[in-house]
Write a protein that binds this DNA or RNA. Structure first.
Lengths: 347, 347
DNA sequence: CTGTTAGCGCATTCAG
DNA sequence: CTGAATGCGCTAACAG
């Protein structure tokens, strides 16, 4: 009953299947599959290979990944799960990942609701796609347990990930310590900390590391001078505005912020309330976003190499997918303190 | 030979199929499919439905979207193709899209290389996923022609999209006009323009609209004072630094920038070269990124409502997917000039 | 209402 | 080297 197998002219409107290519080239679908997947070496004759290639070109055939995935039991998708894409950090990370994955895997992003881990249903839908691997930014323990299946997975920026979950992290301890040491070196003796309200592990570590380093370096951190706000700049600004009187009274001369965005809010609020930075208050950030060189004053911050994270994570994931055991389950990338004007460093 | 069909205890390690659920519940796979897809109303008895639901729960079954997509000929994926995710704009847009798509479709992002349209191979891989629909940011004509297949598609921020491609755009004409009018009202008579080197239609329209509005309002735009740089802040800063002498000589007193990022670069370079903004040079941006309230001085810019774009685009796409013809093929969202200190407006 | 059946497009044995 | 046959997991007719 199949009256459509007369391959006279390539009909671009109709979906081209491997079977069509096969008849067009006068071979079987098996041969087409071999050629289309570059597995023809030593398994298909030169002549047939050439024929198939030509048919593919003429018909405009491309492998249907749905069919392919079903047959193989797994897709060639790598899914990056991240909450807050709008961070310039991610653009660089993605570039790094893409470079490593190349043509072999297809990278797609799954964005979760602001700052939240994906819901159970979302996770199932993700798994339903049968991805070759997952890259997950700052996964919650809940997310990881919900996942359950033995899927190649690398956690990013997840210093709290359990032992059995490979992860690529920044050395935030070092970064936070560097900030504290820098402030101490500038002569500060009482400092404050503006934390983020979202409780990801990396942010918790930043705070804890800073506080412990500060103590170690002989700096006081008055309890009233440790506060927090959401990652919205406006919120950070408001927090500064409402707390400044108390902070000032507590005698702090420097404020370390959990992220650059927080610091921007502080700089803005300081400017409008007439607080001079760094004379009245030194301010530091964390992340070293591009804007930090353009803010007024320019912001002292901790630079994290997003591109490297992407590269390392993608390489590790590929190993996992290939079944090669990872030599290092936990990778740690160094961070670098960028001293700028907001802390009274070099302009 | 199948000795694995003894469903005594739920084995979480093994992939759960609809067939397993069926045997477990004592029904057929068809019934399972109906229930799992919420199409059981009036087609499955209460008793069987309950049984199936219980089996699904016990076994932890979820629909395999690969198999489902293959059977239906289309997946429930909506793919957003965008080049530059790191723009805070996208986070809001995505939130809007997600809200409209709800549980019915799964949104994934495909990030293309910085500022570039996806390659032909990438497009094929995208199509290979058989997405239910595509949302494409600033597609090039090449992209659209390469696509060819009659897939539900909405272009975003694509004022140049051909008639037959539905799109959701901002009224950049109005925005650019507002900028020009504002500068004219501030008394500027000679102004410059810093364009982006990436040639997307929206950027081209911003420039053209600004230049024509400026002319109409009696402002001169010396040819030497129209320049361009990449969207990297540092590049914009460098462009300012090398051009300022010439610009100054040309007599311009204001510089309109194609994007806020460009403007940040200009503000930074102006600050380091001792050019006072807005006294020596008024500066305006376009996009109104969050940082524009925190820059020094705060940046006059054109606000675009990203969330609305997301909502409108997703709604239109759903209509397309459902086969409902669109009433309006081209949607245009208004933009709003935010006057701030960089143009000598209110602080 | 419910079960049976026939593909969806492809990769992979397994005989030739 | 090559092709026919099988099944991946599911949905949509189609019979009961």
């Amino acid at each position: 009953m199949n009256n459509a197998d007369s391959p006279n002219e390539p009909r671009p409107a109709r979906k081209v299947t491997a079977a069509m290519v096969a008849t067009h080239a006068g071979v079987s679908t098996a041969t087409v599959s071999l050629v289309a997947n570059g597995k023809s070496a030593g398994r298909v004759s030169k002549r047939n290979e050439e024929r198939v290639r030509e048919a593919i070109r003429e018909l405009g055939y491309y492998v249907d990944s749905i069919g392919s995935s079903l047959a193989r039991g797994v897709s060639s998708l790598v899914i990056l799960v991240a909450p807050d894409i709008s961070n310039p950090f991610f653009a660089k990370l993605i570039a790094g990942v893409r470079g490593v994955l190349g043509e072999d895997y297809q990278l797609l992003l799954s964005v979760t609701d602001a700052g939240l881990s994906p819901s159970a249903t979302e996770i199932r839908r993700l798994l339903g796609l049968r991805p070759a691997g997952l890259l997950v930014h700052a996964p919650t323990p809940l997310f990881l347990s919900e996942l359950s299946s033995p899927l190649p997975l690398i956690a990013l920026d997840a210093p709290d990930a359990p032992e059995n979950i490979p992860s690529v992290n920044f050395d935030v301890l070092q970064g936070a310590h560097d900030v504290a040491a820098h402030l101490a070196a500038q002569g500060h003796r009482k400092v404050g900390y503006l934390d983020a309200t979202t409780g990801t592990a990396t942010l918790r570590m930043r705070r804890e590391a800073f506080l412990s380093a500060a103590a170690q370096l002989g700096m006081q951190v008055p309890a009233v001078a440790v506060s927090s706000s959401t990652i919205e700049m406006g919120d950070a600004a408001a927090t500064f505005a409402t707390h400044w009187d108390v902070w000032k009274e507590s005698g702090i001369t420097a404020l370390a912020c959990a992220t650059d965005t927080h610091a921007y809010g502080v700089l803005q609020a300081a400017s409008t309330t007439g607080v001079r930075v760094p004379q009245d208050l030194a301010v530091t950030g964390f992340d070293d976003l591009p804007f930090s060189t353009a803010s007024h004053p320019s912001l002292t911050s901790v630079r994290l190499d997003a591109h490297s994270v992407g590269v390392q994570a993608a390489q590790a994931l590929r190993q996992l997918i290939d079944g090669t055991p990872l030599k290092e389950s936990k990778l740690q990338l160094s961070s670098q303190l960028m001293v700028r004007a907001s802390s009274g460093g070099t302009q």
